[in-house]
């Protein structure tokens, strides 16, 4: 189940949140190595706590929401935003059939587009 939900496409969508996670991780590492004001349990502890708590909270929320979204994607038909329940709306299948007719996009762009929509 898990493995099926977190397939390549979902992971690609989540990259957007891996970046801030990475930035926080970078600063945690940087401040662990460089400590120009020295180490003091209270102040340094709070400093790391803020970053670690934010890292964990973002990771957990990303995981939960990805499970909800990607899970529903697999379970039910996916429509473009605001089109679920609309008469005559074309579902999105997650393949190269986006309603984009005017754009002369190359194959690569088409690919990323359909995965992220």
């Amino acid at each position: 189940m898990e493995a099926k939900i977190f397939d390549r496409e979902t992971i690609l969508d989540l990259v957007v949140n891996f970046i801030p996670l990475g930035i926080i991780l970078f600063f945690i590492g940087a401040f662990a190595v460089f400590a120009p004001w020295g180490f003091e349990p209270m102040a340094s502890g709070l400093m790391f706590a803020i970053m670690v708590v934010m890292f964990l909270a973002l990771a957990v929320l990303t995981y939960l929401s990805a499970k909800a979204i990607a899970g529903d994607e697999k379970r039910a038909t996916v429509y473009a935003q605001g089109q679920a329940g609309l008469e005559g709306a074309e579902p999105i299948h997650g393949h190269d059939d986006a309603a984009d007719t005017s754009a002369a996009t190359d194959a690569e762009v088409d690919d990323t587009e359909s995965t992220s929509e």
């Binding site: 949140n17 929320l61 929401s65 986006a98 992220s116 929509e117």
Partner: peptide, 16 residues
């Protein structure tokens, strides 16, 4: 004239 590019990027970044 087209759907939002990277719809799910926008959703996840909203949550972030």
């Amino acid at each position: 004239g087209r759907q939002l590019f990277g719809f799910k990027f926008v959703v996840y970044s909203t949550l972030a």
